[in-house]
């Protein structure tokens, strides 16, 4: 039996889009994987790009499916209760007609099935996404990809998290790349992480959105550090003031450089002294300190 490793789960997040979450998540994973076993989860299921940034080929391993109602019109008495209990308005019911479902709007909650007095609703599956993996040496990538047109990204995030659970025990680090924003798919990705790193840029927009993510991680009781990307472009004081107010710490600053941009555009992981610095900082963190404080899920 493989000995369970004391893995550390680190979320890379930040609120604002395009601040460098995926670039840093991939670069950091690449760096850590030189000595430790690293699992990178791309949970930006709307727009997963970690494979592109690393320039690696992934293989599809699984479909993500969600339940949608299957009506048995022989049993249905056209009472319309299924439509009434559906808070997503995914079931259309016009008096005198059989109900039907709009698949893209269905979140698979099964409320209709439970509510149906005639047992006329069964289950069928709809594909809402796919899971891809790629592995090389000490590094593994698992990415979730939502099917365009589906609204509920967090269903795919949760499915990828569940899928990866079985493998996590074999790794020293699990790095989680979240989507932009602060809503459900980001919350789902953050839950269960030991620490989070908020990536921001020194603009008022970066500051504003980082402020939101720091509030969110505070509510979720996840210790969050900050990295200022493109630190030489804009006004760093904005971020420094926010950091002081939120009592956290800036663990690295990454200046804008043509070199980084070039690697990024070419689909190569970024190697930079600032990434090494982040890796060192992470290696020094004492996991037990966070574990005791964190929210149990």
């Amino acid at each position: 039996m493989v000995e369970e490793r004391n893995k550390m789960k680190i979320a890379i997040t930040g609120g604002k889009g395009g601040t460098g979450k995926s670039t840093i998540a991939t670069a950091l994973s690449y760096k850590l994987a030189k000595t430790k076993k690293v699992l990178l989860l791309d949970l930006d299921v709307d727009c997963p790009n970690d494979d592109l940034i690393l320039g690696i080929k992934t293989e599809k391993v699984k479909d993500v499916e969600s339940m949608i109602p299957k009506f048995d019109y022989k049993k249905c008495v056209k009472c319309g209760l299924c439509s009434k209990v559906c808070r997503e308005h995914a079931i259309v019911f016009v008096k005198g007609n059989f109900p039907f479902v709009i698949p893209e709007q269905c979140i698979g909650c099964k409320a209709c099935k439970i509510a149906c007095p005639r047992n006329a609703i069964g289950e069928r599956k709809q594909k809402i996404g796919e899971i891809f993996t790629s592995s090389e040496g000490k590094f593994t990538l698992i990415s979730g990809k939502m099917r365009p047109g589906i609204e509920e990204s967090s269903l795919v995030v949760n499915a990828v998290k569940k899928f990866s659970e079985q493998y996590e025990k074999n790794y020293d680090y699990v790095i989680i790349d979240t989507a932009a924003g602060t809503h459900c798919p980001v919350i789902s990705a953050l839950l269960g992480c030991d620490i989070a790193i908020g990536i921001t840029e020194p603009t008022p927009l970066g500051e504003h959105d980082l402020g939101l993510i720091l509030k969110l991680t505070k509510n979720l009781k996840i210790q969050t550090y900050v990295i200022i990307n493109k630190s030489n472009m804009g006004n760093k004081k904005l971020i420094e003031n926010l950091i002081r107010k939120c009592r956290t710490e800036i663990i690295a600053e990454i200046p804008y450089s043509k070199e980084i941009e070039k690697n990024y555009s070419a689909g190569k992981p970024v190697e930079h002294e600032s990434i090494n610095q982040i890796a060192r900082k992470i290696e020094q963190l004492n996991l037990s300190v966070f574990r005791n404080k964190n929210f149990k899920v």
């Binding site: 209990v85 909650c109 439970i114």
Partner: peptide
């Protein structure tokens, strides 16, 4: 867990 609840109401039906 209030952070994960989507308010679909399936539990209330049970």
């Amino acid at each position: 867990n209030k952070f994960l609840c989507e308010g679909c109401g399936a539990c209330k039906l049970l």
